[in-house]
Structure formats: C-alpha cells, structure tokens
Amino acid sequence: MSDTAQAARAVIGDSEFDRDTAVTLREPGVYGIDLSAGWTIINAVNGGYLLSVLGRALADALPHSDPFTISAHYLTASQPGPAVVRTDVVRTGRTLSTGQASLFQYDDEGREVERIRVLASYGDLDSLPDDVRTSVKPPSFPPMEQCFGPEDGPAPVSGSSAIAERLMLKLDPATLGWALGSPSGKGEMRAWFGLADGRDADPLSLLLAVDALPPTAFEIGLSGWVPTVELTVHVRSRPAPGPLRVSITTRNLAGGFLEEDAEVWDSADRLVAQSRQLARVRVG
C-alpha cells in the first residue's frame, strides 16, 4: 500500500461506517438516525447495517459498551431515511448488562411501523480471560490476491447495490460458481472482508460482517432477495487490525427457509464472531 493510500485509511470512530451508524440522543432511551442509502441491497437496507445501528444505540444506553450477544427479529423491510430507535435497559450487572431496542419508521400514511427488534447483552471484551480451548479451525481459502470482488467482474453482480461500494469483499473462487452461471449446489460462501475506506474492524462492525456476503442460496442455485427473519450474533473477541475472513454455510433448506451459520476470523487467526440466521427464500 502506498504512503498516500496508507494516510487515507479511515480509523475507528472517524469513518463512513461510524458516521452512518451514529445515533442522536433525543430523550432518555430514544435516538434518532437517518438510515443511509449507502448500505442498501437492491432497495432494502442491509440487515447487518441495521443491527450495527441498534447495537450502537444500546452501547450508549447500557453501562457496558461491547455487544456479547445480540438477537434480532426483522419485522418489516427498512428504507433509507429517518428512523427512531427506542431502547430499554432490562438489567445491569457488574459483568453483563442486558437491554432491548426497536427501530421504527413511518409509512406513507404517517403511521409508525416497527422494522426490527433486538435483545442483547453487553460487557467488556477487554476483561475476558485469554484462555482458549477449541476444536474449530480457521477457514481455508486462497490468499486475497487470488480471490475476486464485484469490481473484478464484467458487470455488477446481480443483487448487489450501493453497499458493494462500501465494502472490501474478495470471494473464494470455490464459492463463485453462481456468478458464472454454474452454482456448485453447496450452501457455502467465503470471503475476505473489510470496509472499503480501510477502517479496521471493531465489535460493532462485526455485526455487519456476518450479514454482508452474498447469500449462500446463490450457490445452491437460487436467485433473488433472501430476507432475514431472525439473526443472532455472538461477539467473542475484539478483532485484531487487518482484514477478516468470513465463512458462511447452509445445511438445510426446507419449506422456503434456510439457516446461515457464519464464522468471522481475524488476522490473528482468532474466532471473533459467530452467528446464525433464519432467512426466507423463493423456491420455484
């Protein structure tokens, strides 16, 4: 990376992601935000971006600042524009605090509509012990220079939109069959992940990372929108600087729904986040 590019790297707290997830306290427990169109897929606001918005509001409302576990139910599709986040402190303790939050927007008739509701527990990641006992291993896929992003194709990837310009995604070629018209039939998606402006990852951006890759349904041979119904994220550690590796798998598509299990690994080969979501697919 050149000296100019290095100097241009955004930092945590001063980046497009930070500005676009910033909430403004209006009254105790109530925050305002203008959801950015920069994080849309087709016309819908990305679910990971929305989770980061609510995660930031809860970090302000609770005495602890790091999400440990956050579960979200997506009730209606969010649109770019004004929104209100209402938070409620459920319990506070020495090591964990629990809160809930909902994001609301207004429909064309001026009625308030709840878009997403979350329940989360927060703590201090820096206070956790260093002891690690695990059987899980980092995903194995090619180095970044041998992987491919939206900019490497002859045309924009179907279903991608404004969010693609804000991400650094380099997909494992073994999970790119769908983009070439030959999906493997395996429910797998793997990629190097970062923010396009060079901002390093933190616990809040991990909430985006688990939901930023193309749907595994594409590699199963399906296309179109795959809306999230429920998403639970476990943040396990504060990520080291550098790009992340994200691996997502689906083992069961049935009744028009599938699960996606994600693992996020940092540059120090640590598992820093895990998630599971239930999503709808259009079959037939």
Rank of each mutant, 00 (worst) to 15 (best):
A61T: 14
K170E: 13
L206S: 04
A273G: 10
G284H: 12
Q146Y: 15
S15V: 07
R282A: 15
P241A: 02
K170L: 06
D130E: 14
A37Y: 00
D108V: 12
G38C: 13
Q6S: 10
D200L: 11
Q100E: 11
P154W: 12
I42K: 00
V30H: 04
R199V: 09
G48A: 02
R111L: 12
I220C: 14
G149T: 03
V283A: 07
R166C: 00
Y106T: 09
W265H: 09
W178L: 01
T69N: 12
A209L: 07
L119P: 03
E112G: 05
P28G: 09
V229L: 06
I163N: 01
P28W: 08
S161G: 10
V132Y: 10
S65E: 14
S78W: 05
P67R: 10
E260D: 11
R115F: 06
R9P: 03
S97V: 00
R282K: 10
H73Y: 04
V85Y: 10
N252S: 15
A254S: 12
S160D: 01
N46H: 03
A212G: 01
S36V: 05
L206M: 02
D197S: 13
S97F: 01
R236C: 09
V23P: 07
Q274Y: 06
V157C: 05
A120Y: 05
V90Q: 13
S275C: 03
E165K: 00
S71P: 06
L25N: 13
P214M: 04
L258D: 11
R111K: 14
R270W: 15
S135T: 15
G187C: 15
P183V: 02
P150R: 00
G242E: 08
D66T: 03
E109P: 03
F218S: 09
A7Q: 14
P203H: 03
E165Q: 04
S65Q: 15
L258M: 07
P183N: 04
N252K: 15
D107M: 03
A240I: 02
P150F: 01
A240E: 07
V85G: 02
G153M: 14
G153Y: 11
M1I: 03
T175I: 11
E27A: 09
R115W: 07
A209E: 08
V23K: 11
I163P: 01
T249E: 08
N252A: 14
A101D: 10
A120I: 04
L62R: 06
A164P: 00
L271P: 05
R56T: 11
L103N: 03
A212E: 00
R245A: 11
D18R: 06
F148A: 06
S205N: 04
R91T: 01
P138D: 08
A155K: 08
D200M: 09
V84C: 13
P150Q: 01
A83D: 07
S127K: 12
